[in-house]
Amino acid sequence: MTKVKYIRVSTTEQNTGRQETNSKEFSKVYIDKVSGSVKFSERKEASKLISDIESGIVTEIHTSSIDRIGRSIIDILTMIEFFNEKSVKVFVENIGMYSLIDGKPNPSFKMIVSVLGNVAEMERNNMLERQKQGIELAKAKGTYKGRLYGTRMSDDEVLTKYKVVVRELKNGESLRRASKIGGCSLGTAQKVQSILKQKEVV
Rank of each mutant, 00 (worst) to 15 (best):
E85L: 11
N106Q: 06
V92W: 01
F91A: 07
I76M: 11
M111W: 09
E85R: 13
E85G: 15
E54L: 12
I101T: 14
S65V: 07
S64T: 14
T63I: 08
D67I: 05
I101L: 13
D102L: 04
P107V: 09
R68A: 11
S65D: 11
E81N: 15
V58S: 00
I74K: 12
E93V: 12
P107L: 10
K104H: 09
R68Q: 10
G56C: 01
S99P: 01
R68V: 07
V115C: 09
T63Q: 02
F91V: 15
L100T: 00
E93K: 14
F83W: 12
N84I: 12
I66R: 01
N84D: 14
D75V: 05
D75Y: 09
A120D: 13
P107Q: 02
D67A: 07
D75P: 09
I66V: 11
G96L: 05
I95T: 10
M97S: 13
K86V: 09
H62M: 03
A120S: 13
F109K: 00
V119D: 08
M79N: 12
S114I: 09
T78D: 15
S99H: 04
T63S: 13
I73P: 05
I112H: 01
G117W: 01
M79S: 05
F109R: 03
Y98W: 09
F91L: 08
G70C: 00
K89T: 14
S64R: 08
I66W: 02
I74W: 05
I76W: 07
K86W: 03
M122W: 11
E54F: 05
I76P: 06
D102I: 02
P107H: 03
M111A: 15
I74N: 11
E54A: 13
H62I: 00
G70W: 10
P107I: 06
E60F: 03
V90F: 05
I95D: 08
G96V: 09
G103E: 03
I61M: 00
N84M: 09
V119M: 14
I112L: 15
I76Y: 08
E85K: 15
D102H: 12
S72E: 10
K89M: 05
E54I: 06
M97A: 14
S87N: 14
I73Q: 11
I74Q: 10
L100V: 04
G96S: 10
D102Q: 14
M111E: 07
H62S: 11
S72T: 14
A120K: 06
I76E: 06
P105C: 06
T63H: 02
L100W: 01
L77T: 07
V115N: 06
S64I: 10
S64F: 12
F109S: 04
I69G: 02
E121Q: 15
E85I: 01
P105K: 00
G96E: 13
R68N: 06
V115F: 15
S65L: 04
R71T: 12
S99V: 05
N84V: 08
V115G: 01
V113Q: 01
G70F: 08
N118R: 13
I76N: 07
S114C: 11
I95G: 08
R68H: 07
I101S: 10
D75L: 03
A120Q: 01
I95E: 09
L100K: 00
I101W: 01
S87I: 03
I61W: 00
